[in-house]
Design a protein around this nucleic acid. Structure first.
Length: 778
DNA sequence: ATACCTCGAGATCG
DNA sequence: CTCGAGGTAT
């Protein structure tokens, strides 16, 4: 079991103070062991240790937690009841980011991608021959396995690539996945990425079983696998035929493999399941053959696939090619042509979005396509409707582009004349369907038509409230679509009188988003609270399970009063209050995203937050200063200026601030200000820092992160695929650091690396190497 | 855009 | 037990 004899460590701890690091290490080991043994005991009916041994470990864990309350993890096994793992679905930050893949939808696009990658590779490392690794793209869900000292300690979903959900309790039931790595040579800490899926055969059997149990069958293997992984009770998951193939490695240290294919060999040696469907290829023609082959046999494999992944095999080249903010430059996903079906276009309706844009969307006869039943598809704008040439009543061709979003390809014109009633043209409305304001393009010549009534158009307000609560903004759980409606509109007329569909109308409790945080628990405004208690929605009365056609008004946020208890905030509402309170300390970039400023999404918001650190600073900045920020161009700058010029927008900020929303990113007081007075430019791709993270790291340590190299630049940090900025640094004699040098600079300041440029000392060793590369390229 | 899981709340039933 | 709402997956 553990290398430290248990009794001895108990003695040590009770008698003398132990250095903090040792305690933490022991604590983490204990937590891992207890969790594992307990899991084996409860969920697999196969105890790994005797009860007495387990007891001893557990008591030691409790003792440690009592002696050092500060180290108690909130997912500690002592916080759990019985075999239930309370860490289930808890957020998990991946050690290294999980990127997605760039998709290409045709062989022409693939060829263009391959040519670009080849050219880049030739520039980066001309001495290396280019080999490809092609593999099938499994239609499942991505997971990240963390092995520490060979032991599976955590499994997480992909999430947004940075933070996923803890699904360890379910992943531990999957037979394909070893709980302990076999063989030797694995890094002490390594993240293994792969795809979890249900094999085609297993899916058929599972659905037969579901049906025989009188339960609805799953729509497709992918959803069945996703649902299985989201089970709370791992015993249910254990009965689902889940499999996995691994296809990548995240955070690692000291891995001996030099290529993707070599890594697959290692992974297999460690007992991890590697797909049988991959091949190392020497030419583009072979890649085409591979694609052709699996196109022919895509339904004969063990599992469903949705394309082919092509990777540069060599790890050195992968590193040299680097990645964009979203995807690696050394891999691509080719998607097979999507299945196309026919269905009837019943209607084209319009929706008014959070920025006022009016978007037409198609309502169709429900039809199965690519594993789900589709009845709606966006049509983007007037011009797209015209370009596709569809008319209401047409039979249309429908497919799922990129596997997710349904797309209308066009009408089946030959069937048009046979339609009854006859087809008719779609006409874009002239007045806002939500508030009646005349619609117009924001600027002359814009394709998009907008509703100019931004503040009080019910549709725009509802969409903004929904958006600001979303995962990409304030992340307020318990405030979803329905709650957004309930907050921003009245109940509308009795649905029974208008065809049986609720149609919320009229003003709601919120007339704009400025007072949303005043709903929070510690902000008692009797008037607002009363208004909230009075919010009602229509609900259909039902008896014996069936609808009655009769409707009643029921409170939405408060419970229905009964004889026993008066109306009070529902559990969900209490949660909403707590969530709102919590949301007030979100980082600045999320506040920016929440404001629904046109063109200001997560990327621009992060850039702005990193550059300015506070809302006041952003507001005070000139258009030119804003446009100067890396990642913020003239369009975004103009949009920001325009937004801040509107009184009720500024009032939102003032009210939020008053309600306790933190409008600036805190500077960590404990962070050593190692970079005080230095200007650092980061160029190229660093293996373990995104561009934003690198900037962030510089700024929190008192440095200035600049986008361009000049005489004033103290250091240039050059990653892979660094370009002209590196050349300029070399020509100006500015010290150039690689990632290791950068880390050293962050930790210990300029003395640890070399003198900054102005001192004209000998440059660090790295510079020579990079300078050579630079010349090779030029 | 849809499928599927979890949870709370109210209906249903012994 | 059933339903609606919210959240996450692709």
């Amino acid at each position: 079991m553990s290398e430290t004899p248990l009794n001895e460590s108990v003695l040590n701890e009770s008698q003398e103070a132990v250095p903090a690091g040792d305690v933490r290490a022991e604590y983490e080991r204990l937590v891992d062991d207890v969790r594992r043994y307990r899991f084996a005991y409860y969920n697999e009916d196969a105890p790994l240790v005797s009860d007495a041994e387990f007891d001893l470990l557990y008591r030691r864990l409790e003792e440690l937690e009592q002696l050092h309350p500060e180290i108690v993890a909130n997912d500690s096994p002592t916080q759990e009841v019985g075999g239930e793992v309370s860490a289930a679905f808890a957020p998990v930050v991946h050690l290294s980011r999980m990127y997605s893949l760039e998709d290409v939808f045709s062989l022409e696009e693939l060829e263009a991608w391959v040519e670009r990658a080849s050219a880049n590779a030739a520039v980066q490392a001309p001495e290396k021959g280019l080999r490809w690794l092609a593999e099938v793209k499994i239609d499942g869900l991505a997971v990240n396995l963390l092995y520490r000292d060979g032991q599976l300690v955590r499994a997480a979903t992909r999430g947004d690539g940075t933070t996923g959900e803890d699904v360890t309790h379910n992943v531990l039931t999957i037979k394909d996945i070893p709980q302990r790595l076999a063989g030797t040579g694995w890094p002490s800490e390594v993240e293994i990425r792969g795809e979890i899926f249900i094999a085609s055969q297993g899916f058929l059997e599972l659905n037969e079983q579901m049906v025989s149990e009188g339960r609805a069958p799953f729509a497709n293997p992918r959803n069945a696998a996703a649902g299985s992984l989201r089970q709370k009770d791992p015993a249910v998951t254990a009965r689902r035929p889940l499999s996995m193939f691994v296809h990548g490695i995240g955070a690692r240290e000291g891995l001996s493999a030099a290529s993707q294919s070599e890594a697959y060999g290692l992974l297999r040696d460690w007992g991890l399941p590697v797909s049988p469907y991959f091949k190392v290829l020497d030419s583009y023609q072979e890649v085409l053959d591979f694609i052709g082959h699996y196109g022919q046999h895509r339904h004969d494999l063990l599992h469903e696939i949705d394309g082919i992944v092509v990777k540069v095999d060599d790890f050195g080249l992968q590193r040299a090619l680097g990645h964009t903010s979203r995807v690696p430059r050394w891999a691509v996903a080719y998607k097979y042509p999507p299945e196309e079906v026919h269905t009837k276009l019943l209607d084209i309706r319009v929706n008014v979005g959070r920025t006022g844009r009016v978007t037409p969307y198609a309502v169709m006869e429900p039809v199965k396509v690519a594993g789900s039943t589709v009845e709606m598809a966006t049509l983007h704008n007037q011009d797209v409707v015209k370009a596709k040439g569809v008319k209401i009543g047409d039979i249309v061709v429908l497919r799922k582009a990129g596997d997710v979003i349904p797309e209308i390809v066009g009408p089946v014109v030959s069937l048009r004349d046979a339609q009854d009633p006859p087809v008719r043209d779609f006409v874009m409305p002239v007045l806002c369907p939500s508030c009646g304001t005349p619609l117009a393009p924001a600027k002359e010549g814009d394709v998009d038509i907008r509703c100019p009534n931004a503040r009080s158009c019910p549709s725009q307000l509802r969409e903004r409230v929904f958006h600001l609560a979303g995962r990409g903004a304030f992340d307020v759980e318990a405030l979803g679509w329905e709650a957004a409606i309930a907050l921003t509109s009245g109940p509308g007329p009795d649905p029974a009188t208008i065809g049986g569909h609720p149609s919320p109308q009229g003003p709601g409790v919120l007339t704009d988003e400025s007072r949303i945080f005043e709903l929070a628990e510690d902000y008692p405004d009797p008037a607002l609270r009363e208004a909230l208690a009075g919010v009602k929605v229509w609900r259909e009365k039902r008896s014996r399970g069936a609808g009655t056609g009769q409707w009643e008004l029921v409170p939405y946020f408060w419970t229905k009063p009964t004889a026993k208890s008066p109306s009070k905030p529902s559990a969900t509402t209490e949660k909403l209050f707590r969530e709102l309170q919590k949301a007030r300390t979100q980082p600045l970039w999320r506040v920016l995203v929440a404001l629904s400023i046109r063109h200001v999404g997560p990327t621009a918001s992060r850039a702005l937050a990193t550059a300015f650190r506070s809302m006041d600073a952003i507001r005070a900045a000139s258009e030119e200063e804003l446009a100067h920020v890396d990642g913020v161009g003239p369009t975004i700058a103009a949009s920001l200026i325009e937004w801040f010029a509107v009184d009720w927008h500024v009032e939102i900020l003032e009210r939020w601030k008053e309600a306790g929303v933190r409008m600036e990113d805190e500077v960590d007081e404990n962070m050593p200000r190692t970079l005080e007075g230095l200007t650092v430019v980061v160029t190229g791709t660093l293996p373990d820092f995104s561009r934003d993270e690198a900037k962030e790291a510089i700024i929190v340590r008192g440095g200035k992160a600049s986008g361009s190299v000049s005489k004033k630049t103290s250091y240039v940090v050059a990653g892979d695929a660094a370009g002209s900025k590196l050349d300029k640094a070399v020509s100006l004699g500015i010290p150039v650091l690689d990632e290791d040098g950068f880390r050293l600079l962050l930790e210990r300041g300029p003395d640890a690396v070399a003198e900054p440029a102005s001192d004209g000392e000998a440059p660090p060793k790295d510079v020579e190497a990079h300078a050579e590369e630079t010349e090779t390229r030029a």
